[in-house]
């Protein structure tokens, strides 16, 4: 389907005046999703950056309905809100959750799993900045190999995170979910199409959007969108969909040799040796099931 674009989405702003760091990728992911979903979206946000920056009393930077959930309970609170809205006889609404990588792949995973199992009619969006950024960059299970965080510091023996990034799309798809997708704020047209598509499907929908964090990644604030694009172009992040029991890749690798430049532009990867980078290239090739030039 052809999705919405900058001219067709509403000019209204529903996430405004928030206190996110300059150049925040997560804030962009939330802002754009709410513009696609419109004013009747009810947003659920667990502990994490987006609740920390959106609800600073007396500021309430969401112009639509929004609520903070427990850290582990994003999906279960969405279930409750959806049931409540239905019980009140309403039909013109979308229940959407915005949780970070830690709040989704670590702490909120069982609630998400239960929600998909019940097939509740909600959209779960995981904005992935690849660590617990709100509390000062601790490793999550979506932190990529090699990244230095405060709990996986780069030293002379261990060079950053020794584990690979968890494959969340496949975990979610294994539930037999009606619709799941990965996206990137570097490709907003693709992201907007996926949010729109999710809003038209009944049942549980899941979108995993890569949202770089200049603060935690150690990058310039104006590089956020470019990094999110490069991650896709180099094959370190895939744009894919899962629907009707099948996976579909939305975009091929266009810059296989760009990995070095992508990694070197971020302080969290500054310590990597050539050997480490070769390892990252090899695991990318393995994930894509082929050797790339």
């Amino acid at each position: 389907m052809s999705g919405p674009n900058a001219r067709t989405i509403t000019g209204d702003e529903y996430f405004y005046g928030h206190k996110a760091c300059a150049g925040c990728g997560g804030a962009l992911a939330v802002r754009i999703a709410l513009k696609v979903l419109g004013k009747n979206a009810v947003a659920v946000l667990p502990a994490g950056c987006m609740s920390a920056v959106g609800f600073n009393f007396p500021n309430l930077c969401f112009a639509n309905n929004a609520i903070i959930s427990t850290f582990a309970g994003t999906a279960s609170m969405m279930t409750g809100i959806e049931a409540g809205l239905k019980a009140r006889g309403l039909s013109d609404y979308t229940v959407v959750g915005f949780a970070g990588d830690g709040g989704t792949a670590d702490i909120g995973l069982q609630a998400l799993s239960g929600c998909i199992d019940r097939n509740d009619d909600v959209i779960y969006i995981c904005y992935d900045n690849e660590a617990y950024m709100n509390t000062g960059t601790q490793k999550s299970s979506l932190t990529p190999f090699g990244a230095s965080t405060t709990t996986t510091p780069a030293g002379s023996v261990v060079r950053g995170n020794i584990r690979e990034k968890k494959n969340l799309l496949e975990i979610v798809a294994a539930h037999g979910i009606p619709y799941a997708a990965t996206a990137s704020i570097g490709y907003l047209d693709d992201y907007m199409m996926k949010v729109k598509k999710a809003s038209l499907i009944k049942g549980t929908k899941f979108i995993h959007v890569l949202a770089p964090c200049p603060t935690g990644w150690g990058a310039q604030t104006d590089m956020t969108v470019e990094l999110a694009k490069k991650a896709v172009d180099t094959g370190l992040w895939r744009l894919a969909e899962y629907e009707n029991g099948e996976f579909r890749l939305n975009r091929d690798i266009t810059d296989p040799d760009g990995i070095r430049g992508y990694l070197r532009s971020q302080k969290r990867f500054a310590h990597l040796t050539d050997e480490d980078i070769s390892h990252i290239v090899e695991s990318r090739d393995a994930r894509w099931g082929r050797s790339l030039p």
Binding site: Y16, F62, A66
Partner: peptide, 15 residues
């Protein structure tokens, strides 16, 4: 509960 869209202070000073 609180009214949605309350902005109590500006972000201009961050720049």
């Amino acid at each position: 509960c609180c009214r949605a869209g309350i902005l109590a202070d500006l972000n201009a000073g961050w720049r």
